[in-house]
Structures are given as structure tokens and as C-alpha cells.
Amino acid sequence: MESVSREFVRASPRLDGMVASAVGYRTTGERPGLHRGLPSPYLTLIFSLDGPVVTGSTPEQAGGAGASRTDIVLGGLHQSPAYVVRPEHEAGIQLAVHPLAARALFGVPAAELARDLVTPGADVMGRRATDVRELLCEQETWEERFASLSAYLRQRAADSSGAVRPEVAEAWAWLARHRGVGTLRGLSRHVALSERRLTTLFRAETGLSPKQAGRLMRFQRARNAVVRPVAAGAAPDLARIAADCGYCDHSHLVRDFRQYTGVSPSGWMAEECRNIQAGSHGGGEE
């Protein structure tokens, strides 16, 4: 039986804050199964260096004829997990992209990527994205791949004429500063828009309401706080994490875990423990 090998390589993209994290991954000898791709306050961009990435909104869809199969994955901001088929071997580069960078990097607002669970990247980014993927497959080192991908994305941004309304950009920044805990009333006052007008503009740009985006930011912070002790082989203190991340109580943290992962915190940790300890979690910013 082939032994399991997992490789995860992180890079620091120099893309002016448009990309929060970049991870190269390669695994072999895995037992085929399903992985939960969790919602986050970032868009997902994956260039597969192996076969297509197969996903579905349910385990049944992921394993059936209705699954999405694409070599370049674009994922928008969602409120429920994506189920990703985990083959015996896979390789690729996964980026966490700031949603307000979608116009610059992809030519469309993030809201357009929220309509479907996964959008084939070539459908949005064009033939050049396919050429870049083929180049990444041919290159021999992660350093070369990260450099090529960064250069490609910098060129797309340089050629872009898309701009985000300043009120929406400031609203996102305010939510991030408050780690997703601020109120819609406080946010609307900060950007000098009515709550209704702000919600309309924010949803048109990102696909989410400000409240939904704030919940994702808070969950991302809580998930990262859970991952750190698990990666070190310790049990996380969920009550302390809930308090530190701005939840009313432990039950509200459990509620968000169930919505965003489909299982309880303990159930998710049991499923993902090996991947966490191998270093495959923790991308993005808090």
C-alpha cells in the first residue's frame, strides 16, 4: 500500500493586499473521500496541477453526475460548505483572494461568483488562465510557480479598469477592523449611508449583506483559534474562543460551526485533525 505523503508550501504574495494567502499542496497515498471546503470572507482561486477539482453542494452531488469538475476553481462568498472529492493524489495552488479584488483580478464583482458554488476559472478569466495553468504544471519548483502566478495576477490587475465604490470598500475595512462584531447601525453611520442603501450596495458588490460578511469574519477568526491548539496536539477551549471572538456564548459558536461546516466543532476537528496537523489549514487573515 502506498504511504501517505502531504506537502504544503506557503508563500507571501506581493499583490498589494489583494491575496491574503497562497498555498501550494501535493498529497499522495490518500484514502479517497470527501473534504469540506468551508465558507470564509475570502474568494477561493485554485489552479489544479493534477486532475480536475470535483465539488458539490452536498456529498451526494459531489459523488454524482451533477458534480462540478474544473481545473481552475473560482469560489465566491458562500454560507455553507462545499464538498470536495479527495482523490488518492492531488496537487495545486490555492489562493485566498480579497473579495474587493475580484474586479481587478477577475473582471467581475465578487457577487457574480456567489451565484454558483464553483465557477470554472477559464470561463471568467479566459484562455490565458488555461495557458498559465499549463505553465504551472510544467514548472518544477513551488518558487517558480508562485512567481509565475503572481506575475499573471499582477498583469491582470494592471490591465483592469474596475473600481469598487469607496463606501463599500470602507464598510468592508470597518467590519474587518471590528473583526465582524460591529453593528449594522454603527457601520451605516460610519459610511454615511442608510442601512438599506448600504446593504444594497454591499450585496451587489460581494453577494452578501454586511451582517453575513461580519459573521464570516468572526467565524474565520474562531476557526483559526480552534486550529492553533489542534495543530499543536492540544484541545481547544471553545468557551474561551467564543468569548474572545465576540460570540454571546458557546452555543452561538456551535451554531455557526454547524452552519458553516455542517457539523459541530468537535465533529469538524475529528474529521480534519490530520489535515490541520499537516499544515493544510490556517490560510487567510484574521
Rank of each mutant, 00 (worst) to 15 (best):
G24D: 04
S21L: 11
A20T: 05
L43D: 01
L38K: 00
A22I: 01
L43Y: 02
R31W: 08
S12R: 12
P13A: 06
A22Y: 03
P41N: 08
R14C: 09
S12W: 05
S40T: 15
G29D: 01
P32Y: 05
I46Y: 00
V19E: 05
R26L: 14
S21D: 14
A20M: 05
G33S: 11
R36P: 03
R14F: 04
T44E: 15
H35F: 11
V23P: 00
G24Q: 01
P39C: 03
G24V: 07
L34H: 07
Y25M: 09
A11G: 13
V19N: 08
P39I: 02
P32C: 07
P13I: 05
G29E: 02
P13C: 10
L34F: 04
M18S: 13
I46H: 02
R36T: 06
R26A: 14
Y42P: 01
R36H: 10
P41C: 11
Y42W: 15
A11R: 04
L45K: 03
H35S: 13
G37H: 10
G33W: 06
V19P: 09
T28G: 07
R31F: 06
R36Q: 10
G17C: 12
T27N: 10
T27V: 12
P39L: 02
S21G: 11
G29H: 04
E30D: 13
G24K: 00
P32L: 06
L43T: 09
T27F: 12
G17V: 13
Y42I: 03
R36C: 09
